[in-house]
Design a protein around this nucleic acid. Structure first.
Lengths: 312, 312
DNA sequence: GGGGATGGATAAGTAAAATTAATCTATTTT
DNA sequence: AAAATAGATTAATTTTACTTATCCATCCCC
């Protein structure tokens, strides 16, 4: 069993000064209290720590051994506490965060690089994946927070995810798109809702909930059975598939902006407002965010607004 | 200023278990007390350490950092305390001792080697020198104890050496000796006290207190002015000088036993009992000796008795 | 040397712990 | 759904630890 730690603290000061009165001063205690502490520590360890000479203490071998253990700890502790303190006023340290694969692979590294120019003492650990794996990680304290989209049916209000809170952060416009050549060959001037019954699709899930939601929103079609020629849980793969003329797919607009601009990818539109995928920041509900977290989340928000301003 | 160490101890247990109640059990405290400790620690460090979820705690980054400091310390402390404990029941660790040069150069290393066969966990630091340097070292706790001879006028009861206690340990017979060839040329069958007025001497001090004491004891001569051809504070040098026929010198018998046996060095004798040099163990008067000290001192005593039994 | 000063230990009063008991919330059980 | 359980916290009393005061020894200085 571990001894009383405060007695070790008292011992540390007494050993350094070889003086009860001196240690008492440093500890803001009375010599009496310090004397009692040392006596009880000697009792507990059943070994004398100091030989009492007139007006002087001499350390014993046990004492030397004990101090050798305490010395590096105290040094490390003072340092560590200072770092913890400084992390309250300025961002620093390791930030552990999670993000959807596409978001984490593309925009986040760029934001991180920019952020580190202002705060070089911040390091990142980024975990890519689904909310279904990221949220439990947040819940267990393995991640400080996670970006997550709740589009594809993930829900915060399940039993397992109790205790989490989310805040909308960035909004990505979801568009239905295909390659220019696919558009020319299969869509063209055809009647818009009709063509979907003949077209091929790339989806994220065999049941294609995102695609169905898009159809319902834009054309109020709910009972369509889209011809899904590829389903894959990867935005990048869907984009590549679109580029290779496999068919129509739902993608975040900001990931294909250049291709849209140069016309190699075509966006299918209806008159209605586009579907927005909200990416939210998820963290523990009761958690007091650190300055590092607040600062980086703010940075991401600002960056995103600046960039989506350029590509509306 | 360092924080309350007991709160750190409490934190250590809470972090490991992520449970107030669990930590309370390990610490033999109530959950209430543990909860109060953590709250006050968070207050003192001005940083939250745990995020409270229903029936569960989640560590914060500050918490991780703090634990990373505590973890190696606690491991080292448990180990160290066990070693300190085991040093109470069996000899172990570093023994720092002092000894007169001759004694430390010749017999002590042999005794140490033998001792370590029984107690391989004991290591030694040996400081050679005069009581005038060894005793202050003992007084300052730099040596656990010292062997010292009080023959040459060193005294325990001076102001500086207050606080020390000595215990007679080994006795060495001091003899007056010269080389066989010197004996043949300069002593021979001459009248014993008379010859000293003509002879040459090797001494440890220009005033030769040892030599004078020997004369007084054996022949009751007190006002002789011996012809000192070499004075040197080194027993080995005196022996070498004797071997090289420089004259007569006082040496411990046990250091020249082989030479005496084979007749290359001759011992001058009177009818009286030989002068005995008491080598004493000096340590702090109030000090409780460790088992290692007691054990090694006992070993030296035993060895010495065994060896001096062979050479009476 | 004697009187003051210094440093540590001890004995009896006060402040700060820990405990007990009660409260609150969420979860599991029936 | 109500009851029971588990875990953390809050409010009260008890126990522990700290302080003040006193004592004892040594050291220092005139």
């Amino acid at each position: 069993m571990l001894p009383d730690f405060n007695r070790l603290k008292v011992f540390y000061h007494v050993y350094r000064l070889l003086s009860i009165a001196g240690a008492a001063g440093q500890l803001h205690l009375t010599p009496s209290a310090v004397s009692q502490h040392i006596q009880k520590l000697e009792d507990e360890l059943k070994t004398p720590l100091f030989t009492r000479l007139p007006r002087r203490l001499v350390a014993t071998p046990s004492s030397d051994r004990l101090f050798a253990i305490l010395q590096p700890f105290v040094v490390g502790l003072e340092q560590g506490l200072q770092e913890i303190q400084s992390a309250r006023s300025q961002p620093r340290g390791l930030l552990r965060l999670g993000a959807p694969v596409a978001f984490g692979e593309t925009v986040l590294p760029r934001y991180m690089a920019l952020y580190r120019k202002q705060h070089p003492e911040v390091r990142f650990h980024l975990e890519l994946g689904h909310p279904s794996v990221l949220l439990p990680a947040v819940l267990q304290g393995k991640l400080d927070f996670a970006f997550a989209d709740f589009f594809s049916g993930s829900d915060l209000d399940t039993a397992e995810n109790r205790g989490l809170s989310s805040r909308p952060m960035v909004e990505e416009t979801l568009i239905l798109a295909c390659s220019a050549s696919y558009y020319r060959d299969r869509i063209g001037e055809e009647d818009l809702p009709r063509v979907f019954y003949e077209a091929t699709f790339i989806a994220y899930d065999p049941f294609a909930p995102a695609l169905r939601a898009w159809m319902k929103h834009h054309f109020n079609i709910s009972r369509i059975k889209p011809d899904i020629v590829l389903s894959v849980e990867s935005v990048r793969t869907v984009i590549t598939a679109i580029e290779n003329h496999l068919g129509l797919g739902i993608v975040p607009a900001h990931l294909v902006t250049p291709a849209l601009d140069q016309g190699s990818i075509i966006r299918i539109e209806s008159g209605r407002r586009p579907i927005i995928n909200h990416i939210a920041v998820v963290q523990l509900a009761n958690k007091i965010p650190t300055i590092t977290e607040k600062s980086f989340i703010g940075h991401v928000e600002k960056m995103w607004r600046a960039e989506s301003g350029k590509t509306p």
